[in-house]
Write a protein that binds this DNA or RNA. Sequence first.
DNA 1: TTTTTTGCAAAGATTTTGCACCTTA
DNA 2: TAAGGTGCAAAATCTTTGCAAAAAA
Lengths: 145, 145
Amino acid sequence: MERTLEDRLKILLRAQGLRFTPDRLRIFRALADKHKPISVPRLIAIVEQDGVNQATVYRTLEQFLAVGVVQTVLLHDGVVGYELVPPFSSHHHHFICLDCGSVQDLAAERVDSALDKSLEGTGLRVITHKVDIYGQCEKCHAASL
Amino acid sequence: MERTLEDRLKILLRAQGLRFTPDRLRIFRALADKHKPISVPRLIAIVEQDGVNQATVYRTLEQFLAVGVVQTVLLHDGVVGYELVPPFSSHHHHFICLDCGSVQDLAAERVDSALDKSLEGTGLRVITHKVDIYGQCEKCHAASL
DNA sequence: TTTTTTGCAAAGATTTTGCACCTTA
DNA sequence: TAAGGTGCAAAATCTTTGCAAAAAA
């Protein structure tokens, strides 16, 4: 029998003394369906349709952040987005197109080991990292020729 | 005779059809003095003492972003900060302490070449990147023992 | 002088809060 | 039942905007 991501969420929340509620599940699902980082106002717009209150979204994101269900990322310049983190989503990095602002995921293996090694001997204890790479996506590159 | 950073700013702004004004210089200096990313409200609090208006700060940051004087970064989770970019500051990455939220600069050489290489053959045109590394700073590590 | 920038003050958007009521475990 | 969660509506913050006056080139 397999354990779903929603089971994991339930276990994780309870382990932290938090409750597994319908609203939290709705917010979790909205994030999972997206497969991309999403700003708070957009997330609110989505889950409001399921009857979730604004304030609940803010409070839930704060909790999800605290227990490591989500992380914040910078979308195109200046906007904060939220997205699920492992084990609720794959470990990845972002490629942000400077022309159109689109964000795409990059598989993380390519860069991770190099990064880890580069910090040996600094005295810092590395727990995780985010890598954002900026440039031109294929579509915008083609359009600019 | 040397060219100061403020000269460079003047040249860059004019090259873009923008003017080099006292307010812009004040905002630039506040960023340069900081040596760290800073949130907009904090920046406003600083330059307001020099008589710079709120709206001017927002408008100036937008311009600085557009012409490549500053970039946005994510401070401790969920807050957007602004900081100068090369050639107005050195190219670097951030180490963010998960315990105390402090942000420190990391010299970039260690990670850059590895990153660049890792994206060969993806079809993406890489222009720049941001790397944020999270963990425990030395002080917090010592305190947690 | 022409064009851009700024101040001001209002509008708009986002985020936080207190408290009574409801739900989970 | 006890601890935590939610809705509501107001307050606090943060950000954007229009327009007339001021400053830069």
